[in-house]
């Protein structure tokens, strides 16, 4: 059944392999700049956050942020490009594979981009900063990173399916995606929010993702509810992405 998905995913991986160096340089530059500016530059002004130096506080969030925004970006732009610019989706659709196979391939591509780029940033932060964590925490961290990347890849697929204009895609990213990432406890602890807001913020799957991921990586704590929330959200997003794409293709 997934023969078509495999062929398309392998095509996407071939393209990624061809441009891996420039992709990685571009993707590492942004979180690293933030790390240097805030984690190092501002550290002495900020002091300890939640008992940890600020650079330690933001490091795991930067890895998570890289992974999920890479997943989102790859999915949204790739789907838009193949649908509206290159018409490759249409060339896939006249072969004996199903529309679901196409969208599943694209979801996996976005997911793979997220994981690879998240790992790359993790390695760079590990190599050039004093940020350290016990290796056994990694497994728990992946329980957040994997469904988190899948969630953002599916969200990207949905955006790339429903939006026909590139400027709309840019606006949605600025108004919705980036704020969601930045407000979910990446740069400051949730306790900074006024009590009336914090329960709303906590209800967001992105908050569960960033909060749970940091606790897992730094403290080895496991927040099962948060993990469940991210996992469920990614499943719902997956079903929605497949459904919306199929609907769009049936015109």
């Amino acid at each position: 059944m997934l023969r078509g998905s495999l062929a398309i995913w392998q095509r996407d991986m071939l393209i990624l392999r061809r441009s891996i160096i420039s992709e990685l340089v571009a993707v590492v530059a942004y979180p690293l700049t933030i790390y240097l500016a805030f984690g190092i530059g501002m550290q002495s002004y900020i002091g300890l956050v939640d008992g940890a130096p600020y650079s330690m506080f933001i490091a795991p969030g930067l890895i998570t942020m890289t992974a999920v925004s890479a997943a989102y970006n790859e999915s949204v732009w790739s789907l838009w490009f193949h649908r509206r610019v290159q018409f490759t989706i249409e060339s896939y659709r006249v072969t004996p594979i199903s529309v679901s196979e196409i969208v599943i391939a694209k979801i996996f591509t976005g997911f793979t981009h997220g994981i690879i780029k998240g790992c790359a940033v993790g390695l760079v932060i590990y190599a050039i900063t004093p940020f350290r964590f016990p290796l056994e925490h990694l497994l728990q961290y992946l329980l957040f990173l994997i469904p988190g990347s899948a969630l953002f890849s599916c969200a990207g697929i949905i955006s790339g399916t429903v939006m026909d204009k590139p400027e709309t895609i840019g606006k949605v990213e600025a108004v919705l995606v980036m704020p969601l990432i930045f407000m979910s406890g990446l740069f400051f602890p949730l306790s900074s929010y006024p009590p009336s807001v914090v329960s709303w913020v906590r209800a967001l799957p992105t908050t569960a993702l960033f909060e749970g991921a940091r606790r897992a990586l730094v403290a080895g704590e496991m927040l099962p509810l948060a993990a469940l929330q991210v996992a469920l959200s990614s499943m719902v997003a997956f079903v929605a992405a497949v459904y919306i794409f199929r609907y769009k293709m049936s015109e």
Binding site: I15, R18, Q86, T88, S91, V94, T95, P96
Partner: peptide
């Protein structure tokens, strides 16, 4: 679809391949 070939009006080649 398994027995038709289609040349669409727009060129739908993959320029990255």
């Amino acid at each position: 679809r398994s027995m038709i070939g289609v040349v669409s009006q727009e060129n739908s080649l993959d320029r990255y391949l």
